[in-house]
Amino acid sequence: MRDFSYLRADSIDAARQAAALPGAMLLAGGTTLIDLAKCGVTEPETVVDITHLKGLDGITVDDRGATIGSLARMSSVADHADVKSRFPAVSEALWQAASAQLRNMATIGGNLMQRTRCPYFRDPANFPACNKRTPGSGCSAIGGVTRGHAVLGTSEACIATYPGDLATALVAFDAIVHLGDRQVAVDDFFLLPGATPDKEHAIAPGEMITAISILASAAARRSTYLKVRDRQSYEFAAASAAVGIEFEADGRTIRDLRVALGGVGTKPWRARAVEEALKGKLLEPDTVRRASQLAIEGAVDHGANHYKIELAPRVVARAILKMGETA
């Protein structure tokens, strides 16, 4: 790991100013940044430690919704009683991610900013070609081993999967990312790779995530996060679904539905076509399975990741039907 200067921020403004300087990067839990610095992927000149800042780790939940400070740890949010009861999908996405130790370190702000696990991206010594790391250098994954790569939102420049679980739950419930005074819908915060896969987030140098907020809703209250992976625990998603559902008074007709996919897209993937197809319908297995196929509209595989196109709709259907059972 190349050496860097260390600067401990004592205020949000100081952190923003320091992070705006060339080569400077914010350091929160370090579970992405230090990892990638060791891989030689990120080479900060200065790390700006924000973990000693006060007042950014609050979690407030009331009838209107939840506001979570950017320095709140994944573990605190996952275990928060009101997050569990009003936003179960958020809690479940968090406790099924990473490990207990990593969740104690990792912050909500850093979590949104985590980078892809594309093995070529993580290995610059052996794979110099990577458009995300070095724009214009090519893509080592296309034509390589693609088992973990995305099938939705890919481009000719990059097919890397966005690996995070939390953001998948957040896009399902229209969460807002707070960058100080500026607010961005979480769906707009994540960018498609297109021709510029190095640009991943709608955030400018010198901006800092200060909080995320989510509006309360009946669908968020009856929600779940279903994560399917190669081993039962401590693994990224092969495919996952965040689903929230609200029924009419009859308890069977779907009034509101939220569906988002993880592990299959270049960004957290909202599946609005599935939602629209099922609103107003009775929750019945065949109807749900047919509608869930719409989740992978436009999917493109690169060989070894073809299974994701089969898997994702099944995960969506299973999650929706599971929510129906508890009706």
């Binding site: 260390y6 579970t31 430690d49 130790q101």
Partner: peptide, 19 residues
């Protein structure tokens, strides 16, 4: 490399000593 910081289990290999 698991250690406790302020009573919480964390990974010492991804924590800077300065932090």
């Amino acid at each position: 490399c698991t250690v406790h910081i302020d009573g919480q289990r964390v990974l010492a290999c991804l924590t800077l000593a300065a932090q």
